[in-house]
């Protein structure tokens, strides 16, 4: 299996200026701070975090909405650490994104046909003659009827709109799709339909997904590997089953024990009960040392001085915490 995406030391800092006119930089918001991970071909990597953890910024830097402050993004071995406008067309064609809210990510003045034809025309996927048949094919993949072509986004339901957004992402035959919370605005019965469709598509077209979400139980059922982000850094990364059987980072344990569940079997997974306390600090004033030291029940003096390094404690299981620094495998 080869790596389709490798992210190395990625940083995205947003400057805070003192006033609109002087533009004097006062401080930085460290939205993404030294993030490294890789994504294998045909794999689903779940990037989980609370709001303000930098997971969406990571996604936006990868698809080129923001340019990174530092770091490398290797897509199929090619460095693409610039904004999308500076990327070669053939790379842009291969990386697609589905946004969280289909109500705002689809142009309300265009009908579905116009929305889907934009990427087809820009990337010259099909000739003008075959445009309609390609759009019909795309609607067919997401199981929407053909007559939806001439409807406007507001005339269809929320779940169907997200299906249109998925069809648009598929239009250019990408190999990597970044899914930025694709179902968090939807009801669970609709979410189930969308997730099952996404998994079918992933298998059929051999796609790789970078799946951004805040929903751990959803990731348990979807992701091959899961990474937890907190204050712009990855705290733990492990294969999905291992991640839930043997969560190591105190933050991961806190997250898992906070998930509301619906069966007794699930409660046994939440056995390591760490009571949730405190809130995520602002990413302007990140505390020195480990970012989690304000909420951690196991904090030591060291945690306030030194930021721990990412350590591979078991094959494929990485954790960034002082508790496990000696457990290098």
């Amino acid at each position: 299996m080869s790596e389709i995406l490798t992210v190395k030391g990625l940083k995205k800092y947003f400057p805070i200026v003192s006033s609109t006119f002087s533009r004097r930089q006062v401080n930085y918001i460290k939205a993404v701070d030294n993030v490294s991970f890789f994504l294998n071909e045909g794999e689903i990597l779940g990037l989980v975090g609370e709001s303000g953890s930098g997971k969406s910024t990571t996604a936006y830097v990868i698809v080129g909405i923001y340019s990174p402050t530092a770091g490398d993004i290797l897509f199929k071995g090619r460095n693409i650490n610039v904004v999308a406008t500076k990327r070669p067309l053939e790379v842009k064609k291969e990386v697609a994104i589905v946004f969280q809210d289909p109500g705002t990510s689809l142009n309300p003045q265009h009908n579905i046909r116009e929305i889907l034809s934009v990427p087809l025309k820009v990337h010259k996927v099909v000739s003008k003659k075959h445009l309609n048949s390609k759009i019909e094919e795309l609607l067919d993949i997401v199981e929407l009827p053909k007559n939806y072509m001439y409807k406007q986004p507001r005339a269809i339901g929320g779940g169907e709109r997200q299906m249109v957004a998925i069809a648009r992402a598929l239009a250019t035959n990408p190999s990597l799709i970044v899914l930025d919370e694709p179902t968090s605005a939807l009801d669970v019965s609709v979410q189930a339909k969308i997730i099952n469709k996404l998994l079918d598509i992933q298998k059929e077209f051999q796609l790789s997904y970078l799946f951004i979400t805040h929903d751990l139980s959803l990731m348990r059922n979807v992701a091959t590997r899961i990474a937890i982000m907190y204050l712009g850094k990855i705290n733990e990364l492990a294969p999905a089953a291992e991640f839930f059987q043997n969560p190591l980072h105190p933050y991961t344990q806190m997250l898992i024990s906070s998930v509301p569940v619906v069966s007794k079997a699930e409660e046994s997974i939440k056995k390591k009960k760490i009571i949730s306390a405190g809130e995520i600090p602002s990413s302007v004033n990140i505390p020195p040392g480990c970012g989690f030291n304000t909420r951690c029940p196991f904090k030591k003096d060291l945690c306030f001085e030194v930021d721990p390094e990412m350590v591979e404690v078991m094959p494929g299981h990485y954790v960034r915490c002082h508790l496990y620094q000696g457990m290098r495998c």
Partner: peptide
């Protein structure tokens, strides 16, 4: 439809 921590997959909706 509710995704479960036990990872038994998601229902059809």
């Amino acid at each position: 439809c509710v995704p479960k921590l036990t990872g038994e997959g998601i229902g059809q909706g």
